[in-house]
Nucleic acid binder design. Structure first.
Length: 523
DNA sequence: CTGGGGACGGGGCCC
DNA sequence: TGGGCCCCGTCCCCA
């Protein structure tokens, strides 16, 4: 019995020792793990703080930009550089700013400075051309980009964006060749320049000197430029290309674009997204959707109408026929002028290729009570939702649309009582002006985009409307079908005859009442 | 005063 | 029958 007691005591003591040892072991393990865990937590907290600081900085910037934007609404001007640059026609004037392209070069070269005369000062910006080393390897969407870095300027918050176009889609061999041999002037090489400027804080990029802004635009075109577009379009009649694929305007948060840099030849974006934004409008991925993403039958002719400033001309089958480059400009104060001399070496004027966006904003009573930019609705063609790739192009027009807030508000207020909301349900993505059908919008938007799908076979003039081309061709044919019955004077222009007849009637044409409805009036 | 391009609305045709 | 598409007429503006 005593032995038994001793045995039990010994066992108990041994177990106690073992238990203590086990506890000690466990405690040690816990301590070790806790140390590691705590270390990790500390590191995580550090990262958290860093990220939070970044976030606060970003929010600060955003709020500042918005505040300044409300003070100074921005305008958008889109201009079509068209072939002027491509033909080596010198420089391009954007509003009162003159972007001078070195003569003899059809392609902006790396480091090539662009002089932007802003009246109050001159800022020199370096344009960096990033071209696909292997266009073919990059696929049909081989693109060339121009990366512009602001190196100096009197307004550190202004940003400019100059880009070249990227040949995309069903690019004809010559177009690919143009890109691959961009160093030598090629008549068909096309470029486009997007300028984003304006006073405080462009949405695209509003950093300081380190800012870099790059937007790529893809260009699609096929066929010969020496044929008229009508021929190229293969249209039986002298019609304009269908609306759906012709106008693409992206707008939105530029940052969303950044995620689309996955294409092979995409411009190397900086690590800091706040310093470099790049849009890669690669044809295969680009949201233009010329062939696949735009479906008029679904009513989304307008879905991209704020994305890329190019126009694809499709035939009935949706085949991409031609795309003209255009230039997008977002600026604050520049007057809506286009210096034709600056870029039209062959002597024709592009005319008013871009308009003051703000003007349009204020003349919007016709639009319906809804805006596609605001409250997308599936039923309304204007309200088609943006597809997944739409973020691709949510590039340039975010601020435009933001600056459009007031106009839209006015539109919505008026629309409720205007009674025209039904009739003009198709809205211009730029100015919100309403039209009765998509084609009207498409044509109208050429005012903003500068797209001119119709080219004269006799000269190189291009027109946004088929009728204008037809009328223009009377210049070559000498046809003057409008004859004054009084003096037998003939005119090629119907209105010229009408105006001329005022001479006979003694009517003062300057005081003649305008029958034509103003942009603000209803039809 | 004329020439000519830009812009836009109306209306007809076709599906 | 309605909508899309296109042509035409018209006005504005500039050179």
């Amino acid at each position: 019995m005593a032995n038994c007691m001793v045995f039990h005591t010994q066992i108990a003591s041994v177990m106690e020792v073992l238990a203590n040892a086990a506890v000690a072991e466990i405690c040690k393990l816990v301590d070790d793990d806790y140390a590691v865990f705590r270390l990790e937590i500390t590191q995580s907290q550090k990262e958290n703080r860093a990220l939070r600081r970044k976030l606060q900085l970003l929010e600060l910037k955003v709020s500042r930009e918005r505040a300044e934007r409300t003070i100074r609404p921005r305008s958008v001007k889109i201009l079509d550089r068209y072939r002027g640059m491509a033909r080596g026609e010198g420089h391009l004037t954007v509003g009162h700013r003159s972007v001078v392209k070195p003569a003899g070069h059809n392609t902006w070269r790396d480091g090539q400075p662009i002089t932007v005369d802003e009246g109050s000062g001159t800022s020199t910006q370096h344009v960096i051309v990033i071209e696909s080393a292997d266009v073919e390897a990059a696929g049909p969407g081989g693109s060339s980009l121009v990366k512009q870095e602001r190196t100096e300027g009197d307004d550190p918050q202004q940003s400019r964006n100059i880009q070249t176009g990227a040949v995309a889609g069903v690019v004809p061999p010559e177009s690919i060749e143009d890109l691959s041999t961009a160093a030598t002037p090629q008549p068909r090489t096309r470029h486009s320049i997007a300028e984003v400027s304006g006073k405080p804080n462009g949405i695209l990029k509003t950093e300081t000197d380190a800012e870099t802004l790059t937007v790529t635009k893809s260009l699609l075109h096929t066929g010969s430029e020496h044929r008229s577009d009508t021929e190229r379009l293969g249209l039986g009649r002298l019609g304009c290309p269908p609306a759906p694929a012709s106008e693409y305007l992206l707008y939105g948060d530029l940052r969303t674009v950044h995620s689309h840099l996955d294409s092979g030849d995409a411009l190397q974006a900086g690590n800091d997204p706040s310093c470099s934004y790049t849009t890669e409008m690669e044809p295969v991925n680009m949201p233009l959707g010329l062939e696949t993403q735009t479906d008029l039958s679904r009513g989304d002719w307008n879905r991209h109408s704020s994305s890329v400033f190019s126009e694809g001309c499709l035939d009935k089958k949706g085949e991409v026929i031609a795309v003209d480059e255009v230039t997008v400009k977002v600026e604050g104060d520049a007057p809506p002028t286009w210096n034709a001399d600056s870029h039209l070496g062959d002597g024709y004027s592009q005319g008013r290729d871009f308009l003051d966006y703000r003007e349009s904003l204020e003349t919007n009573p016709d639009v319906a009570t809804h805006s596609p930019l605001h409250t997308p609705r599936d039923r309304d063609p204007v309200f088609t939702s943006m597809g997944p790739s739409d973020s691709h192009g949510r590039v340039l027009f975010d601020q435009v649309l933001n600056s459009n807030e007031r106009a839209r508000a006015q539109v919505q207020e008026r629309g409720a009582t205007s009674g025209n909301s039904k009739k003009k349900q198709f809205l211009c993505m730029f100015c919100n002006k309403g039209f009765s059908c998509p084609q009207k919008v498409e044509i109208h938007q050429r005012v903003h985009t500068g797209v001119k799908p119709f080219s004269c076979t006799q000269c190189h003039m291009r027109f946004a409307e088929a009728g204008t081309l037809k009328r223009h061709q009377r210049v070559h044919t000498g046809e003057k079908p409008f004859v004054c019955h009084v003096c037998r004077a003939s005119f090629s222009h119907s209105f010229n005859l009408k105006r001329h007849q005022r001479v006979h009637t003694g009517e003062n044409h300057t005081a003649a009442p305008s029958v034509r409805s103003s942009p603000t009036s209803t039809s």
